[in-house]
Design a binder for these strands. Structure first.
Lengths: 205, 205
DNA sequence: GGGAATATTCCC
DNA sequence: GGGAATATTCCC
């Protein structure tokens, strides 16, 4: 769980600033959502196993199947997510546009979710639940802009943030000094108290 | 939790028709949010403990204090929530309108969050994030203010400095927490010492 | 402290 | 399957 979380956090942390890396890739490559990475990784892990399959890619690697929802929920989900509910997992699949392929088995499919194509996950987007105030014809416009809004802070913002951080540092340092001073007083108090205690006992004896 | 949502919906749907129960006027009583119930219960649980306090009501029961953020995050949070991040907990407190009362200790206060008043939690509401009429990317446009930049660090340097400052901030905060913990231990030590001292002197007399 | 994105839950 | 509320994360 810890390992896992760390990896997740690394992903999130680095992801935002990765924009410069990808070259002439396919459309709108961005850092894949954590949910997609986890789901993909959980399938990779499954590949390595010898035991009875809980979840796996289908034969062609074009979809994946949850063979045992019960075990999947109880054993697999909590190692990747903060819950063990199959329905929450499915809710996420739907959010990212996966389709159930069959009424008989739990097979899910997405055009951009295929075995061996981890990098393609970046092309999968959440379905937006736009504030209904906007007419449909404005959506594409707002999406466009959201995408192109670069993560880069400009110098102005950086300097501002910088200034605030320094101020904060000063305040924290002052808090520490206060703490330390109090600590010294307490220690002095304690030691003095021990002295007088000794003396009293000595006198009484 | 099931109960909760049902009652809520009844309230919303039927308006005021829920209770032959309510007397004069209890303003908009609804079922408290899970976050509030958990936070309240976690304090009740703390009351029962004998060991060093991690978190507790203040003396008057009008606010609560996280005495040891480190232990609170590691031990308490995961038993009530799906995470162990102090900052996520604080984010929720802010969402529900709690105020930090002091820059020195982690004390939080809300008018409707008091010891012995579990039923009053129903009056606490989430702050709404009003769906603004304009998309986020237009907002900055209207707020635009041109401050002139006269510093001559380049962006690279600024970002670097920035990153380091944040790291430093974290370390300072941790130092403070440590100091605070030590302070508490010293006080406990002192008080215990005074007790035994009294006893010894008494016996000798 | 709070805005906004993503995750989880609950309900239809 | 998806709308909507709440929770968690990330960032400013």
């Amino acid at each position: 769980m810890d390992d896992h979380t760390n990896v997740l956090e690394l992903n999130l942390g680095l992801g935002s600033n990765l924009g410069g890396l990808h070259v002439g890739q396919s459309p709108r490559q961005r850092c894949p959502a954590p949910f997609l990475l986890k789901t993909y990784d959980l399938l990779e892990e499954g590949e390595a196993e010898n035991s009875t399959k809980i979840v796996s890619w289908n034969a062609e690697g074009t979809a994946f199947v949850v063979w045992s929802p019960a075990e999947f929920s109880e054993l697999t989900l909590p190692r990747y997510f903060k819950h063990n509910n199959f329905s929450s997992f499915i809710r996420q699949l739907n959010t990212y546009g996966f389709k159930k392929t069959s009424s008989k088995i739990w097979e899910f499919k997405h055009e951009k979710f295929k075995r061996g194509c981890r990098q393609m996950l970046g092309e999968i987007t959440r379905k937006k639940c736009e504030p209904s105030v906007f007419p449909a014809y404005l959506k594409s416009c707002s999406e466009e802009n959201a995408t192109s809004s670069t993560e880069d802070k400009n110098e102005q913002q950086l300097m501002e943030e910088n200034k605030n951080l320094k101020k904060e540092r000063l305040e924290l340092q002052m808090q520490i000094d206060e703490c330390k001073a109090l600590e010294i007083k307490l220690l002095a108090c304690l030691s003095q108290f021990m002295d007088t205690h000794q003396n009293k006992v000595r006198k009484l004896c």
